[in-house]
């Protein structure tokens, strides 16, 4: 199967005061189209840093990162910005919806940024929101919605641009267990529909829902 995403010998460290703190050591990972990977690790293990690098929000100090055939480790800021918009769908623990925008305005943002006309963007967004059971909430503001509903909106926003990969950072972290369960089931459905997903979690039970678990401890990956 063709590799969707390939990481080779990634290293990353941060300068904290005068000290150099290495957070990722020689990361090697291959993700195939249609994968559903759980990146499981305790807090401080470097999983968020890895996620940011995969999501083109941060860069590694050394090593190679290919998304499809693109050498991301060579990309400049403008190219990374474009890749974030077209190839990556972010789902955050705290939803990260823009509070003064309506649900619809939030969801069409990735498409507007891409330059797609509003009319078409609204049509695509409405489809996704309907699929996620949010069709009657288009003109609500995020703070008028429950946590589960907000997470659905953020999932709709991640899906609307048809990205190559969905990156979910503790997607159930802010939800109660029942709603969390629903969101995880939704992820399984989305994966069945052909979406590739990488999900970060510290909770092994949440990790069980994925097809494949990759553990990360102290900045090193342990494949199972």
């Amino acid at each position: 199967m063709e590799n969707l995403l390939t990481l080779k010998h990634l290293n990353k460290s941060y300068q904290i005061g005068t000290e150099q703190l290495q957070v990722l050591f020689d990361i090697n990972l291959e993700v195939h189209a249609g994968d559903f990977i759980a990146l499981l690790g305790p807090s401080g293990s470097g999983k968020s840093t890895l996620m940011n690098i995969i999501g083109c929000m941060d860069t590694a100090d050394s090593g190679e990162y290919f998304l499809h055939d693109k050498a991301i480790h060579l990309a400049d800021d403008t190219q990374m910005t474009k890749i974030r918009n077209q190839e990556i769908g972010f789902i955050f623990q705290k939803y990260q919806l823009i509070s003064q925008y309506t649900v619809l305005q939030n969801v069409i943002m990735p498409l507007l940024i891409r330059g797609i006309p509003r009319k078409e963007a609204v049509k695509l967004a409405a489809e996704k929101l309907e699929m996620l059971g949010m069709a009657d909430r288009l003109n609500h503001k995020p703070n008028e919605l429950s946590g589960g509903q907000q997470q659905r909106v953020s999932i709709a926003r991640a899906l609307v641009g048809q990205p190559s990969i969905l990156l979910a950072d503790e997607p159930t972290g802010a939800l109660d267990s029942k709603t969390g369960e629903e969101v995880l089931n939704l992820f399984q459905e989305l994966n069945d529909m052909g979406n590739s997903i990488i999900m970060i979690t510290h909770d092994p039970k949440v990790g069980q829902k994925a097809k494949r678990i990759v553990k990360i401890i102290d900045g090193r990956l342990y494949l199972e």
């Binding site: 929000m57 890749i83 974030r84 972010f90 990260q96 943002m109």
Partner: peptide, 16 residues
Amino acid sequence: TKEIGILKALGSSRKD
């Protein structure tokens, strides 16, 4: 700041 962060994560350019 957070809103700007979100827009950047979604791929908004500096120019925008």
